[in-house]
Design a protein around this nucleic acid. Structure first.
Lengths: 105, 105
DNA sequence: TCGATAAGTACCCTTGCGGTTACGTAACTA
DNA sequence: TAGTTACGTAACCGCAAGGGTACTTATCGA
């Protein structure tokens, strides 16, 4: 979970992820699409791999990366513990607004 | 969103957040509960504040911090774009398993 | 077996983050 | 008004993250 969030904190890595959301891609393809050089992309992919966010499949010299959204489920579950909270919060807000805004803390 | 994820990438800050999930707290209380000194906590809180994850309310000398889960909704929405994907993936997996595992990519 | 292609690793450098101590500031209190 | 309390900010330090260049490794094709 820590690894996943740390992986996601980097914008480039999120971009990689969003590329892979469309379809699997090779490391080279990803590097071409991003403003950083191949070695950098390799390292990004390593982080994503170690965080469990992507999978690699080897095809001759190519390494084809694909999304492995299972790790994101962790984040989703962590957020789940807040979801009820913000639902209540928003619901409460709505009622407050409806009854003329007597904010209570 | 970037700010939110970067804020969440730090374990201490997630801990602060989880403390505030229970109830609002002052900066001092949070610092006492954590293994880091007050100035550090202050900066953590600043990051959380600027990311929109917490709110401050002043009560005399005290600064009372409370959760503001609206920012987490952003993350939730971002994850939402993957949720369908992993649902499909898991569903697909189930059917693959059921029909005897002919993995297709 | 030798070159070409694709990717990963080693190394270096710079920047930013997180922590600490020391100091500044606002508000209560005697 | 002087002292105390509760925070925040500034300055400094160490370290790890993230980028680039150069090199290594693995696989295919001639």
């Amino acid at each position: 979970m820590d690894a996943v969030l740390q992986a996601l904190a980097d914008g480039s890595r999120r971009t990689v992820l969003e590329m892979l959301r469309d379809h699997p891609a090779t490391a080279g393809e990803i590097a071409q699409a991003l403003p950083i050089a191949r070695p950098g992309v390799s390292r990004h992919l390593r982080v994503l791999r170690e965080a469990g966010l992507v999978d690699v499949r080897q095809d001759a010299q190519r390494r084809i990366y694909s999304l492995r959204p299972e790790a994101l489920i962790e984040v989703d579950e962590w957020l789940g513990e807040y979801r009820a909270l913000w639902q209540n919060r928003l619901d409460a807000l709505h009622t407050e607004v409806a009854r003329g805004k007597k904010v209570r803390e």
